[in-house]
Simulated assay, not measured.
Amino acid sequence: MQFQSALAIYMLFWTLTVFLVLPFGVRTAHEAQTDLVPGQAESAPVNFNLRRVLIRTTIVSAILFALFYLNYVYGWVTPEMLDWVNHPQ
């Protein structure tokens, strides 16, 4: 696998992982028992920490990419294994 291809696939994993990690650890004003700022939605997070989200995203996406790359190298799951329509009897 070329470096550019691996980087592109890693970036896809990273982008997907952002949306998976984003909701974890978020507390609303009601949950934190603080007052709402005028105009603030009730579902808005109280203390959003972007650094924590980026670190979690990088760790999870690195693990997922490592699993993907190991599968690419060792062939644990192949396209033929996933072909349920034309599966030989």
Rank of each mutant, 00 (worst) to 15 (best):
L22P: 01
P23E: 07
F24L: 08
F24N: 03
G25C: 08
G25E: 09
G25P: 10
V26R: 11
R27K: 15
R27N: 11
T28P: 03
A29N: 09
H30Q: 15
H30N: 11
E31W: 07
A32G: 00
Q33S: 06
Q33E: 12
D35K: 11
D35C: 05
L36N: 09
L36F: 15
V37N: 05
V37E: 11
V37R: 14
P38H: 10
P38G: 09
A41V: 02
A41M: 12
A41E: 12
A41H: 14
S43Q: 07
A44F: 03
P45G: 05
V46A: 04
V46I: 12
N47P: 00
F48H: 04
N49R: 05
N49H: 12
L50R: 06
L50I: 14
L50P: 08
R51T: 11
R51L: 15
R51G: 07
R51M: 13
V53K: 14
V53H: 08
V53G: 00
V53S: 00
L54G: 02
I55K: 06
I55A: 09
R56H: 04
T58R: 00
I59K: 03
V60L: 15
V60G: 01
A62E: 00
I63R: 02
L64Q: 00
F65L: 01
A66H: 05
A66E: 06
A66S: 14
L67V: 05
L67M: 13
Y69K: 03
Y69I: 01
Y69Q: 05
L70A: 14
L70V: 10
N71Q: 09
N71M: 11
V73G: 01
V73S: 04
Y74M: 13
Y74T: 10
Y74C: 12
G75S: 12
T78W: 07
P79D: 08
P79S: 09
P79N: 10
E80D: 13
E80W: 04
E80K: 13
